[in-house]
């Protein structure tokens, strides 16, 4: 059982987040503010019923308010709770943080297809950095192997196994969340559990997601993953440097995705996939910076984006260097 033995500190079940008065990220639908206690009581009672129903007692996060409504105090409390829970569950001391977007930054990614040789180091580094479960084994980055001379998804293979790559006659196309400027997944979410941050990162509030998977249906790039099973990360594989809306351990039944390693990139570092790429095919930078790598690439190289005709305006560019 995942919930037994919770320390009282780990489960402040009497603290519904509805008491959060601040409302920074304006919700799409704001029908006037109501007294917080009423909301808290309602939310808590609904959640309590649901908590009983799902058999998840103190381990659940059904009381937490939406990320955008959390005050600094709420965040501190919730982060501490998650840290304690993680310590209890895995024995690993982790640090949860929520780095904020920087002014004048819009992230973009570029990938040189003439260099990618399909070695999947990116997908593997991503899995470690972002605490992807060991079981079941899925990846945020799907590296597609295609016949040279085609760009045909239908005949692509993401499950190739070879002694060495690249295989003659094949080309490789890694696909991950494209962090669209017009993200279809964000549009469809019924509870605003996913949104595009000011720096262009499309993120998910794992505590708010109801797990309806409408966003997965809406994504043209297979950019999202749902936790069909309880995700299990071996303690030795856990990356303790965790972002609340990025790589912290996710509960079962919610959708997760690539965040361009928000916990790294918002503090100035490069995404893990880029650092792991031995061919240097991956480029990352600030689209707003005229001297940034991605901007220079955009101005000097012929680029294309996947499924441009869908109007999603991806911030992930492919080019041939």
């Amino acid at each position: 059982m995942k919930n037994d033995g919770c320390t009282p500190r780990a489960c402040p079940s009497g603290e519904p987040s509805g008491s959060a008065p601040a409302e920074r990220g304006a919700p799409l639908l704001q029908l006037g503010r109501r007294p917080p206690d009423r909301r808290a009581i309602l939310g808590a009672s609904v959640a309590a019923v649901a908590g009983v129903a799902t058999g998840s007692g103190c381990g659940n996060h059904h009381f937490d308010a939406h990320y955008k409504e959390l005050t600094d105090e709420d965040k501190r409390r919730i982060f501490e709770r998650i840290e304690a829970e993680t310590r209890h569950k895995t024995g690993v001391d982790v640090k949860i943080s929520a780095p904020q977007p920087m002014d004048g930054v819009e992230f973009a990614y570029a990938l040189d297809l003439s260099l990618c040789n399909g070695n999947r180091r990116c997908a593997e580094a991503c899995a470690r950095e972002n605490n992807l479960p060991d079981v079941p084994k899925f990846r945020y980055i799907q590296v597609l192997e295609m016949d040279r001379g085609t760009l045909d998804f239908e005949n692509a293979n993401a499950y190739y196994e070879h002694d060495e790559v690249p295989v003659p006659g094949k080309v490789y196309l890694p696909v991950q969340c494209q962090h669209c400027a017009n993200p279809p997944c964000v549009k469809v979410c019924p509870v605003t559990a996913t949104w595009r941050e000011p720096d262009g990162l499309v993120v998910v509030d794992y505590n708010w997601c109801i797990g309806c998977r409408y966003c997965i249906a809406a994504c043209p790039y297979f950019g999202r993953r749902f936790n069909f099973h309880e995700p299990t990360v071996r303690p030795r594989n856990i990356n303790p440097d965790m972002g609340y809306i990025s790589n912290r351990l996710r509960p079962v039944g919610v959708v997760e995705k690539c965040t361009f390693c928000l916990q790294r990139t918002r503090v100035g570092r490069y995404p893990a996939c880029l650092e792991a790429c031995p061919t240097g095919a991956r480029k990352f930078g600030n689209l707003a910076d005229p001297n940034g790598e991605v901007r220079i690439m955009l101005e000097r190289k012929r680029v294309y984006v996947l499924k441009e005709e869908l109007g999603t305006l991806p911030r992930f560019y492919y080019f041939y260097g």
Binding site: N117, N119, R120, P278
Partner: peptide
């Protein structure tokens, strides 16, 4: 040439 990492589980 490189040895590729294992694929995800289909």
């Amino acid at each position: 040439h490189l040895v590729p990492e294992a694929p995800p589980v289909s």
